[in-house]
Design a binder for these strands. Structure first.
Lengths: 193, 193
DNA sequence: GGCTTTTGTTAATCTAGATTAACCTCCTTT
DNA sequence: AAAGGAGGTTAATCTAGATTAACAAAAGCC
């Protein structure tokens, strides 16, 4: 089944009966995007929370100077959405755009509210997922203050070696909060010794 | 009752029966700290999630150079803990130290697991709380990349005017990721129109 | 194969914010 | 009232990383 990776992922955290899985699959929609397509567009309301089955996407923000800042990347088994927009159903601050052809399993806002009622463990599941996401985000704030750009790049590389391979460098530079020129310089320094 | 502010806060998100409140109060402990005391110490396991009833605390991190970085502040009606340490029950990355005499309502790890079973709405409650915390943290990451120090200070001031009054400037500088000298310069610029 | 677009590199110059250091309040405490 | 500490300011100098610009290497695409 197409949603198997999702079920497998959820059952790492909570137990699901076969009945739960039937209900779940009724409220989850599989959707395919081509490279370049948007899952969420800044200004639109974010209608879905998306679980990545395959492919790769970036979440980014265009500032008032028109410069893009990468908020996060997502690959297989990650979640992506503008969560702030999704929970409030107000316009999104971020874009989510596919960097490869991508397959996702999507929860709509209403679908998810129904699922919370019918499968109470999902409440626990999402609590746990978001706890981890919050902890990771807070660590990133700390790293941005206490590490140099070079150190942050090394951390990123060690933490997400799979992402580093799949994503162009200028997007990684943006994720790290530096220019592509400076990242290039760092990389040159790291390869010569 | 001493835990009234907590009940009031929770019932803004989910309904509680009087029975729920009795159960809750059996698993929540009120605790007082003096100014300067630690709620959590870097290296210890974070044993509690604390709801602030009164007072003020800072969450901070001491880096390898011995410099302190402020992760967040907490005042009345905020939550504080090293969540990463609390959920994994591994040593904390952060300190939580009181900046004023402080009264908190504390959930122990085991107590909270019991409460999740006995009051399923709490699962929902904490999911919602942490969703908002995650969204706020992600916005902070974006601000740190796309705004200047002066702009970030203005945002902080507008967003948390009550915190700005109660906390020394050098800690606010640290929260903003700048030195106290540079914050002082920014403030001088802002007062002379 | 050539031609355009997308990525990545190198180098010169510039700037936001760090560092260092000296000095100025207010509070406490004795 | 003196002394010490905690918090805040000002100013000179320094640096990590930005900006600008030019070029090189891949990667589509006709």
């Amino acid at each position: 089944m197409e949603i198997d990776p999702l079920i497998k992922y959820i059952t790492r955290y909570v137990e699901l009966t076969s009945q739960d899985i039937v209900i779940l699959s009724q409220h989850v929609k599989i959707r395919n995007y081509l490279k370049g397509q948007y899952i969420v567009q800044q200004g639109d309301v974010c209608k879905h929370e998306s679980f990545m089955i395959s492919g790769c996407a970036k979440t980014s923000f265009i500032d008032k100077e028109g410069d893009e800042h990468i908020v996060m990347f997502a690959i297989e088994n990650w979640w992506t959405a503008d969560l702030g927009s999704f929970i409030s159903q107000e316009p999104a601050d971020y874009n989510v755009q596919c960097l490869e052809n991508t397959k996702v399993a999507q929860f709509s806002y209403d679908g998810l509210q129904l699922l919370y009622q019918q499968i109470p463990q999902l409440e626990r599941f999402f609590r746990m997922i978001i706890q981890h996401a919050f902890v990771a985000s807070q660590k990133r704030v700390v790293r941005n203050f206490s590490l140099t750009a070079k150190e942050r790049y090394i951390v990123f590389r060690n933490q997400y070696p799979d992402i580093e391979q799949r994503v162009p460098q200028y997007l990684i530079a943006s994720y790290l909060g530096i220019t592509k020129q400076f990242l290039s310089k760092i990389r040159a320094e790291l390869t010569t010794q």
